[in-house]
């Protein structure tokens, strides 16, 4: 399922992840001039596609917070 606005993606992705932190994975696919970010728990799949550097910054912020959460004690 493609989501076109980043805010919407971040919101839904966070909800999906918190719903089942152990069963979720985040994929980043980088191909020349395109970046695809996907969060899935094998039932629902959220995708966001971008070409621009600004979005890259947001993606990176989101990803690092997720990375932190994944390696933390929180459930």
């Amino acid at each position: 399922m493609f989501i076109h606005s980043w805010e919407e993606f971040a919101k839904q992705a966070e909800r999906l992840y918190l719903n089942d932190p152990n069963g979720c994975r985040l994929c980043l696919k980088y191909r020349n001039e395109k970046l695809l970010i996907r969060l899935t728990d094998n039932r629902t799949c959220l995708q966001y596609k971008t070409k621009y550097v600004q979005d890259m910054k947001k993606v990176e912020k989101f990803m690092s917070s997720l990375l932190r959460h994944m390696a933390s004690k929180e459930i």
Binding site: R25, C27, Y30
Partner: peptide, 16 residues
């Protein structure tokens, strides 16, 4: 990837 200028690079992260 830059040299080849093709192919996609996939990064995945998940809780372990």
């Amino acid at each position: 990837q830059r040299v080849k200028n093709s192919g996609s690079l996939c990064l995945t992260m998940k809780r372990y």
